[in-house]
Design a protein around this nucleic acid. Structure first.
Lengths: 217, 217
DNA sequence: ATTAAATTTTAGACTAATCTAAATTTATTA
DNA sequence: TAATAAATTTAGATTAGTCTAAAATTTAAT
């Protein structure tokens, strides 16, 4: 088995490599993980030795099949536990991330599969992120950032690309929860902020918010 | 917070100090934890520095109030998770120990309390062990080892002092599950084995088994 | 195409937890 | 009660993960 630390690196590399296509940089990892570049380099060497990543000095890293498999298993566990926490234990969607961050390292395939069944084989977690299947396949939804939409277009809020409690709480307060349909009214030239209609009411959101709110059209 | 390792030491010290009254020895801990006496000494010094145990060189260790509080919190989590695994995920009672051993280190009081509520505030785990309350109070049941009983006496099987899968599977196969009532028929002089009646049938158990099976009379 | 800036790696040190082997203390017993 | 055995602790080494500071490499810019 892999250590918690190794697992966290693999998860981060996975996430960064889907955002910025494929090759991941040392500094990129260091920033996300709140650590130093030197530490990242050490770990990249170790993961390369274990054949979990492809790594070329000064060039960056990408996951091998084995590495990707491990990464998606961790993400699967993270998201299933989040569903459990929200659906069964009545946590709010902004409270579950840190706890799931710990639970994702519990080691038992049997446990994961039984949890999956217990939850009724959910397809997405409480933030709209898709839950990988046992083999690591992820059903990617056709998410569109609100910031990319044009006036007149409408979409159903289906995901977020920021998972911090403050952001989620802001959405909650503004009624921008998963499943609600929004229509773009107007985009302000001055600062790119967007006025949209949400459940009969108009409201303005900043460009920053629009970038992190995902809809399905 | 305390490291996993510290938590495991505290749990072990707690368990040993209830078995053999109070003061716990270095070798005793080393044996239970599958480690070396030298490692135990190091950790005892560290735990003493943190005021979690009272420790006198060459004399042994005992928990402080703070140490006991931490230990019982871990045991509370362990046993609640075991209930979850058996009641909600349909694991057998002999399959849950190792998984709970990992889950017991997840750090969130909120999680524990919500889990407790979700499970309907259970009083005992699947092996009959009492679940400590939030404050660390344990409702000790009046357990009696079958090996201490006399012919003619009867009792309800209510706990075990061995938690290994092989032992639990043996009990399962023999029909010696929690809740069934057994009556002592005869104690063999030769090897101390015991013949008892269990659900209309007589069966013989070894002294070793009798020492680890607990009943309430 | 050099130079400067940014990124990345190496070297060397630190901490937590562990180990072996040797030294010390306590317990046993002759 | 002195000698031996058992238990415990210390000394010194090892591993995983981290860090700072310095060196190497790549990228950007003049």
């Amino acid at each position: 088995m892999h250590s918690f630390t190794e697992e966290n690196y693999l998860k981060t590399i996975y996430q960064l490599s889907t955002e910025d296509n494929n090759v991941v940089t040392t500094n990129g990892i260091a920033e996300v993980m709140n650590t130093k570049a030197a530490s990242v380099t050490d770990m990249l060497k170790k993961l390369a030795d274990k054949k979990l990543i492809n790594y070329i000095r000064y060039q960056g890293a990408s996951l091998t099949d084995a590495g990707r498999q491990t990464a998606t298993e961790i993400i699967r566990k993270h998201r299933l536990w989040e569903v459990f926490l929200v659906e069964k234990l009545d946590f709010k969607w902004d409270e579950v991330h840190d706890i799931a961050e710990e639970l994702e390292h519990i080691n038992s395939k049997e446990l994961v599969d039984r949890l999956d069944k217990f939850l009724g084989f959910p397809k997405t977690d409480p933030h709209g992120d898709p839950i990988p299947d046992r083999k690591g396949n992820i059903q990617q939804k056709p998410f569109v950032k609100i910031s990319k939409m044009k006036p007149g277009e409408a979409g159903k809020i289906s995901g977020v690309s920021e998972h911090t409690p403050v952001f989620l709480q802001y959405l909650e307060k503004s009624g921008l929860t998963l499943g609600t349909t929004v229509t773009i009214i107007e985009i302000m030239e001055f600062d790119g902020s967007i006025i949209l209609n949400n459940q009969e009411k108009d409201l303005s959101i900043s460009r920053e918010v629009a970038k992190n709110l995902l809809v399905v059209i």
